[in-house]
Write a protein that binds this DNA or RNA. Structure first.
Length: 272
DNA sequence: CGAAACTCCTGAGCGC
DNA sequence: TGCGCTCAGGAGTTTC
């Protein structure tokens, strides 16, 4: 499940392509979240200049055009010799001078768009602050949560509030701050919000350093899996013992998503 | 406007 | 061995 740390890791793993020219573009399955642009072959002859990340999007700037790419839930990039046989779900191959870039995505929730097209621009326009920016602080989050009745977990996963906080990190951050995921967003005290912000920053930074939290099929451009999953305290641990108090981790559904928490460490009644 | 439901898709895991 | 089922889930879109 690529979350922000995995996207950061993926971006870094694609750095060897910078400075290389595109020789050929081959689309095998154009139907992702949206259709891959049918004129993607425009990239031929263009050189990759730099890579950027915004939320969970990677922007690849070429000489003339730029791509906005999202890994969805099961997307990954690989750098391989062009002679290597294609695997099932390798939907796009871009031959660079030295190596081939492949996009692999079994569930096809990912997307690859021209940065300049209206759809890409509107996606970027609706994004909130970056979690690791100074602009994401207690005051900012407090203002965003102030009038929200929705569960705090759903709120911090809302990209208009803060980007890059997916189910894994929302679950972990709430566990470590002792806040029940179903608490109404507006019920949090400023102190709780402050600790939540710090925890989100801490967990995301740590995960980026460690190379991302891999679940199932995430691999970076070098084919390496992350290993942060070994340190998950609550996510995916329903029915197991809380690492802090030993109580059994419980799970509820919030916003159509599994939400694991410790009923003892994260009491619902706390400041409710 | 906010909130909640719905949608895309495939693989893993499970019961039989 | 394989069928059919449920679940997972990022995030845009639709519906109230």
């Amino acid at each position: 499940m690529p979350e922000l740390p995995e996207v950061e890791t993926t971006k870094a793993s694609l750095a060897p392509l910078i400075g290389q020219r595109v020789e050929q573009v081959s689309i095998y399955q154009a139907s992702l979240r949206w259709q891959i642009p049918n004129d993607l072959a425009r990239l031929q002859g263009q050189t990759l200049q730099f890579l950027n990340r915004r939320a969970k999007y990677i922007v690849a700037r070429f000489t003339e055009d730029a791509l906005l790419m999202h890994l969805g839930m099961s997307g990954s990039f690989a750098l391989l010799p062009a002679t290597q046989e294609r695997r099932k779900h390798d939907h796009l191959c871009i031959d660079f001078e030295q190596i081939q870039l492949r996009y692999h995505d079994p569930r096809r929730f990912g997307s690859i768009l021209w940065l300049h097209e209206p759809r890409a621009q509107s996606l970027l326009a609706s994004l909130g602050v970056e979690p690791l920016d100074d602009a994401f602080n207690a005051e900012h989050l407090a203002a965003k949560l102030q009038h929200k009745k929705i569960a705090v977990k759903v709120a911090i996963m809302d990209n208009a509030v803060v980007v890059g906080v997916g189910n894994i990190y929302a679950t972990e951050a709430l566990f470590y701050t002792g806040i029940h995921p179903a608490r109404p967003a507006s019920s949090l005290t400023l102190d709780e919000i402050s600790r939540l912000v710090s925890e989100i920053k801490r967990i995301l930074s740590q995960a980026i350093q460690l190379g991302g939290s891999t679940l199932r099929d995430y691999v970076n451009g070098q084919g390496e899996t992350g290993y942060f999953q070994q340190t998950l305290a609550a996510y995916g641990r329903a029915g197991e013992d809380c690492i802090r108090c030993g109580a059994m981790i419980d799970s509820i559904r919030l916003g159509q998503r599994a939400s694991a928490f410790c009923p003892v460490c994260q009491p619902i009644g706390k400041n409710c």
